[in-house]
Design a protein around this nucleic acid. Structure first.
Length: 488
RNA sequence: GGGUCGGUAGCUCAACGGUAGAGCAGUGGCCUUUUAAGCCAUUGGUUCAGGGUUCGAAUCCCUGCCGGCCUACCA
């Protein structure tokens, strides 16, 4: 097929391949060139000073995302890490031959450009290009320039296209990274030590979730991907690292939803010589510091327009009081199991009748109370069955010293006064394990028997925190590459 | 796993039983400050896949694949 015939097919990829071939014939290999990026787009813009003669020369680089050719001059927008920047190409400035070459560039190509800054008549700071270089060629078309990429599947599978076309998505992910670095700064400043513990574990403990299984060839035994960070971090408390945290990925082999991704990022923090009340202050300070450093406001607007205020003191409420309030006229906790089930029916809460009493109550909490906790609320005094790793409340052996911080209708962070009595801990494990006694983490109990200082501990689901702080509609909008079924 | 909605040009979307279209992108022209630039011309389709109903299917039915939402599972 001749070049002419290929061109007439209209297939963009083939047309671009031909352009690439033509460049190479002319002695230009766009994948061999490079350029200097002295300024990012926003750095360049910050160098502008009124009056073009005062403005310095800048060297910028990025991907062409918009091209507006007007005969002998053109406006182009490039995208770099800081966003978009406009370039102005004029035949009389870059030279006739160069301008001819420029006109053959495509949207999607990477270029480097240098020139003086000026303001257009609509006040946009723009580079008046003097010299430019093609440094990488794009062979595929970009998504539509105005609407961007809309197809959710393609957004997830080809996130790079989403990041090029959808600036709100791009900004959300930048915000995620800034939130995480803000968290690290906050904890480091208070002398917490960041550590890394095993992701591959012979027994996946610290939570009640189904783990992913893998095989460890060298040891010839099945291993699990971790489902929590807790048990290793507490071993470090035993080891004398009395302020410790880990921020990393954990894996739970469970359903996918708007609020769940099988691999997600967890922060767990342990501080000795404090308790769950100390954790309250820590998490509030931490979130308010993020608001200050990253968002510049404590007021969040959700995707549906509802406002969340994160400033000031936060509400506190006892679990039991919330349940009684939500279930109305009767004392929920005085009801028999049958009466509870009946009440659930009245309240239109689907409950599996085989569940234990406290599980039915937990269902009520998760289905009608938690979704209503939009403003930050510390829910305290949870029933002991829900958290086998925490201390029993003094003077009330039915509850534990714990809070669950709920914001945006989701659990953002649970925190405990950590159980450090090795004998009580063993009992709790045994009661929970029932028949499956072999699953008890004896190595962890051995560590506890050596003595663990009193401590407050906390887990923060980072993805959900990012959902909250960015007003995202789904966890998939906060994870660059969410889990999807592979395409064959 | 169940329910439900969707999959049409590279992208954003029309057409909803009667010849598959538009805008953007692309290609060829015009245009020396544009802002989703504009103007003229023009290329581009196994309508997700496979069956069925029908004179005729993108459209109706069935099965499958992929995804969204809801739900289930879920410390």
């Amino acid at each position: 097929m001749s070049k002419q015939e290929k061109d007439s097919t209209g297939d963009i990829f083939k047309v671009r391949l031909n352009k690439l071939e033509a460049l190479r014939e002319a002695g230009i290999d766009p994948y061999r060139g490079n350029c200097e990026q002295l300024h990012s787009s926003s750095e360049a813009k910050s160098h502008y000073s009124e009056g073009e003669e005062n403005s310095p020369t800048v060297k910028v680089a990025g991907r062409i995302v918009v091209m507006r050719l007007m005969g002998k001059a053109a406006f182009v927008k490039i995208l770099d890490r800081d966003g978009r920047m406009q370039l102005y190409f004029k035949r009389d400035e870059v030279g006739e031959e160069e301008y001819k070459f420029f006109k053959k560039l495509d949207i999607g190509d990477f270029i480097g450009a240098e020139g003086q800054l000026f303001k257009t008549k609509t006040e946009e700071i723009t580079v008046r290009v003097k010299k430019f270089t093609l440094v990488s060629k794009s062979l595929r078309p970009l998504p539509e320039k105005f609407h961007g990429l809309k197809d959710s599947e393609q957004i997830y599978r080809q996130r790079y296209l989403d990041l090029i076309g959808n600036m709100d998505s791009r900004e959300r992910f930048i915000k995620r990274s800034k939130i995480i670095s803000s968290i690290r700064r906050f904890l480091d400043k208070q002398n917490f030590l960041e550590v890394e513990t095993p992701m591959l574990q012979a027994e996946a403990g610290g939570a009640a979730a189904r783990p992913f299984t893998t095989h460890f060839n060298a040891l010839d035994c099945d291993f699990y991907l971790r489902i929590a960070l807790e048990l290793h971090l507490k071993r470090l408390l035993v080891g004398g690292i009395d302020r410790v945290y880990e921020l990393g990925r954990i894996f739970r082999n469970e359903g996918l939803s708007r609020k769940h991704n099988p691999e997600f990022t967890m922060l767990e923090v342990y501080q000795a010589y404090t308790d769950y009340r100390g954790m309250m202050k820590l998490i509030r300070d931490m979130i308010q510091t993020i608001c200050d450093e990253v968002l510049g406001t404590t007021e969040i607007e959700r995707y549906d327009g509802e406002k969340i205020e994160l400033g000031g003191e936060w509400k506190e409420a006892k679990y039991k009081d919330l349940v009684i309030e939500a279930t109305g006229d009767v004392d929920w906790f005085a009801l028999s199991k049958e009466e509870k089930l009946k009440k659930c029916e009245e309240l239109k809460i689907e409950v599996n009748p085989a569940l234990e009493d406290f599980e039915i109550t937990s269902n009520v909490f998760e289905k009608i109370i938690e979704p209503g906790l939009i403003q930050p609320t510390f829910v305290t005094h949870l029933p002991k069955e829900l958290c086998p790793l925490a201390k029993i409340t003094e003077g009330d052996d039915s509850t534990i010293d714990v809070f669950e911080l709920c914001i945006n209708g989701q659990e953002i962070a649970p925190a405990y006064s950590e159980q450090n009595d090795p004998l009580v801990q063993r009992q709790m494990f045994e009661a929970q394990a029932g028949e499956e006694v072999q699953n008890i983490d004896n190595d962890f109990l051995l560590a506890l028997e050596h003595g663990m200082p009193p401590a407050g501990g906390m887990g923060v689901g980072i993805d959900r925190l990012v959902i909250l702080l960015t007003g995202a509609a789904s966890i998939r909008d906060t994870i660059l590459f969410p889990s999807l079924r592979p395409t064959t």
